[in-house]
Design a protein around this nucleic acid. Structure first.
Lengths: 145, 145
DNA sequence: CTTGAAAGGATCTAAGG
DNA sequence: CCTTAGATCCTTTCAAG
């Protein structure tokens, strides 16, 4: 991962659909050289994939919550979460809290329904998201950080 | 958003780089019809963008943590988080906890450094992520949920 | 790695249902 | 709002240096 690879990864994080020709110009490389680098980044799985991002509100999921769980049976909780369409992300964590889940749902009613269902697997503590910000470009860790 | 649009969004979430020709075949539509639908989904901002996903470990960020903050000055905390390269996501939430931040960093030492720096803006409670799962395809909310 | 040329696709347009 | 067919344009690949 030299500086050029970093720039390539950065650009593809911002815009996965940029053409190889245009990206080649951005990093001052010829198309064949650029394409070979991108191929290697994909092969090494530095780049895991290319995905469209959707607006949760437009998907009728205006309510977002982060739920902290204390649970004795993380496996059962994980299975519940993975099979529930409201769940976007789940994290097994070390500490007093054992599971953290991010959900997006339709209404306060559907949120209540989720919480009630989840209580079979642990003790939820629900935090409604008021606003959020997610980084589009993740940079390789460097010592300046 | 009819059934075809849902399928289009689903496929583009899985693979942003699928060609319009191939996607047209998947949804049993002609290329021009498919392209027009995709254009509208982009224009309506149902699809917000297309991004490459990277492997955090390959970016020298093997340690992931979710940090819960109690803070009196959320603005200052938000500014700190938005300017720090370790921070991937941050959420302003309602409740006892006021801020939830997801970070990815290089080492226990760099984690400590982050926590120490963050303590100027609030009281952090750090949860190290042991394992995680994120949904690739977000479906529109439907009554069956 | 670069350049340039050739091949193969993809997208766009136009005409028609 | 859709389809088909044709034309154009662009990207990628290949060969040579």
């Amino acid at each position: 991962m030299d500086q050029i690879d970093k720039k390539i990864v950065q650009e593809l994080q911002l815009n996965a659909k940029i053409s190889m020709k245009e990206l080649a110009e951005v990093v001052h490389l010829s198309s064949p050289a650029l394409i070979e680098r991108v191929r290697k980044l994909e092969e090494q799985k530095v780049i895991e994939g290319y995905h469209a991002h959707v607006d949760l509100k437009k998907m009728d999921r205006p309510i977002c919550a982060i739920i902290l769980f204390e649970s004795k049976d993380c496996k059962a909780l994980a299975d519940f979460c993975n099979s529930h369409s409201d769940v976007l992300e789940c994290y097994r964590v070390a500490g007093e809290i054992s599971y953290i889940v991010k959900i997006a749902t339709y209404s306060v009613e559907s949120l209540e329904k989720f919480i009630d269902a989840s209580m079979a697997y642990g003790t939820p503590s629900t935090n409604i998201v008021l606003s959020s910000h997610a980084k589009k470009v993740i940079e390789p860790f460097s010592v300046e950080d």
